[in-house]
């Protein structure tokens, strides 16, 4: 198991890897992980659109959606950004305090989305290397 740094919760991700037939044959985890990246890209596109439309509800739903799958794979950084998107989509801070200002919420979401994109790109690179090397 390579070190993915704080991108990945090793406990959860190794649980995924254990579902493979063997360490040499990652027939399960490899497509799963790359499906995730596709899903992430699609979600980002939708988030960008929702952000442009200032649709906080939609952003929250999308945030929750991607949070679910990133959490399942143990991709913590992406999950955390999605949590931010979800929370501010609900007009709440990360600590659950109400944030009435739409502009603040949209700004926070835009930042989190940017972070999520960067993290996703970085992680995808690491994952390509990981699966490519094996």
């Amino acid at each position: 198991m390579p070190d993915f740094g704080d991108h990945v919760d090793n406990g959860i991700f190794s649980q995924i890897l254990e579902m493979d037939e063997s360490d040499h044959d990652r027939d399960f985890s490899e497509p799963l992980v790359f499906n995730f990246f596709e899903q992430a890209q699609e979600t980002f596109v939708k988030m960008d659109a929702a952000l442009a439309a200032r649709d906080l509800n939609e952003l929250s739903t999308l945030g929750h959606f991607l949070k679910g799958s990133s959490a399942t794979l143990g991709f913590n950084k992406i999950r955390d950004s999605c949590q931010v998107v979800q929370q501010y989509g609900h007009k709440l801070t990360v600590d659950g305090v109400s944030e009435p200002d739409d502009n603040v919420c949209l700004k926070k979401i835009a930042e989190a989305l940017q972070t999520a994109k960067v993290d996703t790109a970085e992680l995808e690179k690491k994952m390509r290397k990981f699966f490519g090397a094996e």
Binding site: L32, N35, F36, G68, T72, L73
Partner: peptide, 13 residues
């Protein structure tokens, strides 16, 4: 489960 990634993981688990 609506998320296909989670579906897959749960099914295999």
């Amino acid at each position: 489960e609506d998320n296909v990634i989670n579906q897959t993981v749960m099914l295999v688990m």
